[in-house]
């Protein structure tokens, strides 16, 4: 999987550059995101604005990361629109993750 990572106001912004987050990449997604919580947990803002499709395997990987992020860490979502936002709603994962409209919204709410 391809990501574009940057740091802003104490937050790691990780933008997914691939258009699809599905079973074929779910393992790589989980492994890549978990590295951000070692050795010290932090808040990761996962930017999905370039993603057009997420399936249940992709969502399951994100849930697994959330469960294994460690104390003091967090994984929040931004940029989910269209089919991706629908998927979060259909599965009620929009109640599990903190979801923001844009990166700026997330930074404004969570940045130090």
């Amino acid at each position: 999987m391809r990501f574009e990572n940057s740091t802003t106001k104490g937050l790691l912004i990780s933008k997914v550059l691939d258009a699809r987050v599905d079973a074929a990449v779910a393992h790589d997604l989980k492994a890549a995101l978990l590295t951000h919580f070692q050795p010290e947990p932090q808040t990761v803002v996962l930017n999905l604005e370039a993603v057009g499709f997420v399936d249940s395997s992709g969502l399951g990987a994100l849930v697994s990361v959330l469960k294994n992020r460690g104390n003091g860490g967090d994984l929040v979502i931004c940029g989910a629109t269209g089919a991706v936002a629908s998927m979060f709603k259909l599965t009620r994962m929009d109640k599990v993750f903190r979801v923001f409209g844009t990166v700026d919204d997330a930074v404004q709410a969570l940045g130090k």
Binding site: S57, S64, L90, V96
Partner: peptide, 25 residues
């Protein structure tokens, strides 16, 4: 599968969602 307690992360599924997604869609 989606009747989990959103405040109890352990109850949130990591898999087994596909069949319900198909049923609901």
């Amino acid at each position: 599968v989606f009747d989990f307690d959103e405040n109890d992360l352990d109850s949130v599924p990591e898999g087994g969602m596909g069949l319900q997604i198909i049923h609901a869609t």
